[in-house]
Design a binder for these strands. Structure first.
Length: 479
DNA sequence: TTTTGAGTTGTTCGA
DNA sequence: GTCGAACAACTCAAA
């Protein structure tokens, strides 16, 4: 009987630069790649519709890549440990390999799995396949985790020079014997019943090939203008790699290697590499502060006077892109249609929700979680806490975005708004970001009836800014 | 232990 | 139009 290893794939749906796969191939003659769908274990963060759609197509892409190399993917559904045990019994495997994840529920689950399988006499090995640095690797002088990004990155960035080269994809894989229980990816029922996913399919190509195509496009030009262009939502100035990174179809190590291969020094691509740094930072924050997906890092915010009256109605308007503030509505509709939103716009819509509407950041985080194809607990949590002002390195409390001004600065011609709010398409530049202020004759000439074709602004920006400042004062003096 | 410098992404107002 | 100042005080991290 040949030595058999199971490679338990989770958010590392790739063949290249996959340390667990590499280790399994080095250790065993037979390698069985397995994906287990265990949604009940991911509570309270069940994957949203967009995440499930992505997963379906990423699994299909992985199946194809495995088939090309003579292997196949075993797909199962059920509780993780019993499913793994059944597969081990069926295949006679003596080893199990996987790449580590860092969100609290999964850390716990994986710890239990490792302990149980080891007690069964199975050799278990986990690897770092997702991060440049393990969350416990970058420490302050005092030995604790960093809570401020700049200091974290000052410490971590010099280490980029010593990164190991990414692992190449194996040319061929040992065949997976027939007769091992598997189910078709379709059986996981990940696609929506009501087919709202046309916009997603148009915008994305899940899988390893899609990830590398995006990276090549980005390195062919946008990376050099990233510093300025990344803030302009109407332009293709960002890499859009986030959903691929989340699902592990590409690794940060591969991205950095590709940047270097393109002839750029790390310093040339610094603004972009810095964003990879934020991803690292967010993961180490989540690892060291596992309560933060639901609770503010700054405990004073537990008493923040969030709005209670009209909360559900206001939240629904925000979710549907019906706030009457064009840049916000454009963003929320881009999210709904494509499962993604430009980063600059994420900040604007989040600021409106938490500061102007004064609704809890957790409501926003939850909506993003359900609708983003790149929904990632570490990044999402960090982003929302930062915008709400309850992270440790809180933005100055007075930093409240004015969405009209933001629109004028970062979408000066209104191209982004026109794309996603076509009912405003004919408005001149001057009014595109504040149709509520436009003169009646301009509106009627452009075919916009406020309150019918497009909503009146949901809040008075000036007054709500003042209210938010007062609310900050309240918890400050209480704390 | 104490001190020192710094902290992703802003807005408004008045000159 | 552009520019600088004001908007607080506190915590983090290193020296």
């Amino acid at each position: 009987m040949p030595e058999t290893a199971i490679v338990w794939l989770r958010r590392d749906l790739r063949l290249a630069d996959n340390p667990a796969l590499r280790a399994a191939l080095a250790a065993s003659e037979r390698v069985i790649p397995v994906y287990i769908c265990a949604p009940d274990e991911e509570s309270p963060w069940q994957p949203g519709g967009a995440t499930r759609w992505w997963l379906h197509h990423a699994l299909r892409a992985l199946e194809a890549a495995l088939a090309q190399r003579g292997a196949r993917l075993i797909v199962a559904r059920g509780e993780t440990l019993p499913t793994l045990r059944a597969l081990i019994a069926q295949t006679g495997a003596s080893r199990c390999f996987w790449n580590r994840l860092y969100d609290p529920a999964t850390v716990e689950r994986d710890k239990d799995v490792k302990q149980a399988l080891r007690a069964d006499g199975i050799h278990c090995e986990s690897h770092n396949g997702a991060l440049l640095f393990e969350p416990w690797e970058i420490k302050t002088g005092g030995g604790g985790p960093y809570k401020v990004f700049s200091a974290y990155w000052r410490r971590a960035a010099p280490r980029l020079a010593q990164l190991q080269a990414p692992l190449p994809a194996p040319d061929a894989l040992p065949p997976v014997p027939s007769g091992i229980d598997s189910m078709p990816v379709e059986g996981l029922d990940l696609l929506p019943r009501i087919r709202w996913d046309a916009g997603l399919a148009e915008a994305w190509q899940p899988g390893e090939d899609g990830a590398h195509a995006l990276l090549e496009r980005f390195l062919a030009g946008p990376v050099d203008r990233y510093g300025e262009a990344r803030d302009l939502p109407a332009e293709p100035g960002t890499s859009r790699l986030s959903p691929h990174l989340h699902r592990g179809e590409i690794t940060p190590r591969q991205i950095i290697a590709a940047v270097r291969r393109s002839g750029r020094a790390d310093a040339d691509a610094e603004p972009f590499l810095r964003e990879l740094g934020w991803r690292e930072f967010s993961h180490q924050m989540l690892y060291h502060f596992p309560h933060t997906p639901l609770e503010p890092l700054d405990p004073r915010f537990a008493d923040f006077p969030w709005r209670t009256e009209q909360a559900e109605t206001l939240l629904a308007s925000w979710q549907r892109g019906r706030t009457g503030i064009p840049i916000v509505d454009a963003g929320m509709r881009e999210l709904w249609h494509t499962g993604w939103m430009h980063n600059r716009v994420r900040m604007i819509v989040a600021s409106l929700l938490t500061k102007n509407l004064r609704l809890p950041w957790q409501d926003g985080a939850r909506w993003f979680w359900d609708t983003l194809v790149d929904a990632d607990l570490a990044n999402n949590t960090q982003g929302w806490q930062w915008t709400a002002g309850c992270g440790a390195d809180a933005a100055p409390y007075f930093r409240i975005f004015n969405p009209v001004r933001q629109g004028e600065r970062f979408d000066p011609d209104g191209a982004y708004v026109r794309r996603w709010c076509p009912e405003l398409g004919r408005l001149p530049k001057k009014w595109i970001h504040q149709p509520g202020e436009a003169p009646d004759d301009v509106l009627s000439a452009c075919g916009v009836r406020l309150g019918k074709d497009y909503p009146h602004p949901l809040v008075d920006l000036k007054a709500s800014r003042k209210d938010a400042l007062a609310a900050f004062d309240a918890i400050k003096s209480a704390g």
